[in-house]
């Protein structure tokens, strides 16, 4: 019981003190989980991160699930995951409640007029990074632009695009592998 409470509180702290998730959480996880509590080694955490990127869901949350599962099985996995999302639920609910009450004030509206531009900038920066790390060849460029056009003009559910892209990746790699062999 004590270990479960410790697991919950540790991941609560990690969730509540890191902004941005993903890699922003890595140093915090290393400090809390590897150095202070010795629940996992640095190598294990890097493995969790690698797998967390290839499985659905949010990387930081996936890493929490891994460490919890490793320590205390299924219950541990659930407790660590609940810990890492708990601060978000509390903080965001409070902010959303405040915003709903003040949203009609002119000063808030003007602030959000500026903030939306900042969001456009941040999203653009994220896309540039994704393009640099994930679009490696002509086929990648075609998939990226094709997805963009389909999504802007047809507005399909992203589910179909994700499934199609996974299948396409496997088919192309198989076909290429067959040719080289």
């Amino acid at each position: 019981m004590k270990e479960l409470a410790d697991l919950f509180l540790t991941f609560c702290r990690i969730g509540g003190l890191t902004f941005g998730g993903g890699y922003a959480m890595l140093p915090m996880i290393q400090q809390e989980v590897v150095e202070k509590r010795k629940w996992a080694t640095n190598e294990e955490v890097m493995d969790y991160y690698a797998v967390g990127q290839c499985t659905p869901g949010i990387i930081a949350v996936n890493t929490a699930t891994f460490i919890g599962y490793k320590l205390r099985g299924i219950v541990g996995g659930i407790v660590a995951t609940a810990g890492v999302i708990f601060p978000s639920i509390v903080i965001i609910s409070i902010i959303a409640a405040c915003l709903q009450n003040f949203a009609d004030l002119p000063i808030v509206q003007h602030a959000f007029g500026g903030i939306r531009v900042a969001v456009a900038v941040l999203v653009t920066t994220a896309i540039v990074k994704l393009w640099k790390s994930g679009v490696k060849d002509k086929l990648g460029i075609a998939i990226c632009i094709g997805t963009f056009l389909i999504q802007v003009f047809l507005g399909l559910s992203p589910v179909y695009i994700v499934i199609a892209a996974i299948l396409l990746g496997i088919v192309v790699k198989k076909w290429k592998g067959g040719k080289e062999a």
Partner: peptide, 11 residues
């Protein structure tokens, strides 16, 4: 290999 460019396009 197929998914990364598609996610970029979706975003």
């Amino acid at each position: 290999y197929g998914l990364r460019p598609a996610v970029t396009g979706l975003i």
